[in-house]
């Protein structure tokens, strides 16, 4: 995969690049973050993102967080809205918002079915 993915003009799905920061990555000490703490951190993150996006931009069909520890796709959050116009509104607005001390990097994504998502 060249990772030079096509950027669609319209889509129900948006991607927020690197939004999720795995606490195990940022922690230099091994074993300093327990599995329970990790789960709690993830749950809080997921709830906060989901609630705000749905409240502000529109109804969400599905949301996925890439929680891998490798560099590819790390921390990417994919959100599929029910309506294309909500996705467009979200991308435009989110690109001018902060999240956890960083600017949000948001764009439309071609992914429509997360179980089938794979570079071709």
């Amino acid at each position: 995969c060249s990772r030079l993915h096509n950027k669609p003009t319209f889509s129900q799905t948006i991607v927020l690049q690197g939004l999720y920061q795995n606490p195990q990555i940022n922690n230099t000490g091994i074993g300093t973050v327990s599995d329970v703490e990790m789960q709690e951190h993830y749950d809080n993150f997921f709830e906060e993102v989901f609630v705000e996006l749905e409240e502000k931009y529109g109804s969400i069909e599905e949301m996925n967080v890439c929680d891998n520890l490798g560099d590819h796709l790390v921390g990417n959050v994919y959100i599929k809205f029910h309506k294309e116009e909500d996705a467009e509104k979200a991308v435009n607005d989110l690109n001018n918002r902060w999240f956890n001390g960083q600017p949000i990097m948001s764009e439309l994504s071609t992914v429509t079915d997360f179980r089938e998502a794979c570079c071709r």
């Binding site: 809080n44 906060e48 690109n95 001018n96 918002r97 902060w98 999240f99 001390g101 960083q102």
Partner: peptide, 20 residues
């Protein structure tokens, strides 16, 4: 909210677009 609309320390005066 713990994460939303929290700017980087020292860059509170710029917009996220300007920052990028």
């Amino acid at each position: 909210y713990k994460y939303w609309d929290v700017p980087p320390v020292g860059y509170e005066h710029v917009t996220p677009l300007q920052y990028k």
